Amino acid sequence: MAFSADELRVLRRALATALNPAPLQDDDVQDCLRLAESVDESVAEAGRLRAFLLADLVRYRQALPGSLTGYLELLQDALAAGYDPAADDLAALRALRHHPAAGALLARCQVLAERSVRTRLARVSQAQSPSRTLAAAPRARLLALPGGRASDDGGAGAGAGAGAGAGTPAKPAPKPPAPGERPVPKPSEAFPPRRRPVPPPPPEERVAG
């Protein structure tokens, strides 16, 4: 795409305004609009020319080997315009590798095709990498804290108190006395229950006796 001297001046003023915003005059605004329309038309024309070039390339490829010279020229123009060689182009060039120009063009197309495949694979891997990271994230393991039901010291008490309820703590087992040590008396032994006094017999029973 080439710009005329007037279009370059308009483009320079537009860039200066973008860097340093300032009010534009009506003439400057109209010049920028006309330049934008010219750029849009050039882009559309380039797209049409590219479509015609690729259509001619297909026709010349289908007419090989008689159209070898024209096909090689069209393929070089397409590559210069950013065309990625297709599998049909590589197959045609392999069949014509005995021709020096076709052999050199085949080596160039193979490099471009490999680069294009790597670029597409990199884009696919980048698009799939977040989902793979989420899917491959390991699940957190639940670890038992010390002092719970699984501890060695409270294992027997937990099993005994399971029937009484989950929130009822188990009573510790009594500690046996050491050899030669007097056992601690039970509350019933230290404080025996008081016996109720026997009421006296009725007066009739005392007189009779």
Rank of each mutant, 00 (worst) to 15 (best):
E181M: 09
A81P: 01
L106H: 10
Q126E: 14
F191G: 01
F191D: 08
A86D: 15
H99D: 15
R149C: 00
H99R: 05
S129H: 06
V43D: 06
D152R: 00
A166W: 08
R9C: 11
G209S: 13
P183W: 02
R206V: 15
G147C: 03
P203H: 10
C109E: 04
D40C: 05
A86P: 03
A87C: 04
S125R: 14
P197T: 11
L90K: 06
V58W: 05
S151R: 02
L143Q: 10
A144Y: 01
P202A: 14
V117W: 03
R118M: 12
G82N: 07
R94G: 15
G209D: 11
A178N: 06
A178C: 05
A36S: 10
Y60F: 07
A55G: 08
R12L: 15
L105N: 01
A173S: 13
G161Q: 09
A78M: 03
A101P: 00
R48P: 00
A178F: 07
L72F: 03
L15F: 12
P85G: 11
S116W: 03
L79P: 00
G209Q: 13
E45G: 08
E37D: 14
F191C: 03
P199H: 08
A170Q: 10
P23Y: 07
A101Q: 08
T119Y: 10
P174D: 09
L8T: 15
Q126W: 04
K186V: 00
A137H: 11
A36K: 04
A51L: 08
A135M: 07
R182N: 04
K186E: 05
V10W: 14
S67A: 15
P203E: 14
P200Q: 09
T168I: 15
A81G: 10
G157K: 00
P65C: 04
A87V: 14
T133D: 10
A2I: 11
A91F: 10
P202T: 11
P199L: 13
R50A: 04
L57H: 04
A36P: 00
A22S: 14
S129N: 04
A63Q: 09
L53K: 02
L143E: 11
A87S: 14
P65D: 05
P203R: 14
G148L: 01
V111Q: 11
L19R: 15
L143D: 08
D84S: 13
A81N: 07
L33Y: 06
D89Y: 00
E37P: 01
A166F: 06
L90N: 05
G163V: 11
R123V: 12
T133N: 05
E114H: 08
R194C: 06
V184L: 09
G180P: 00
P203C: 07
D89N: 13
S188N: 02
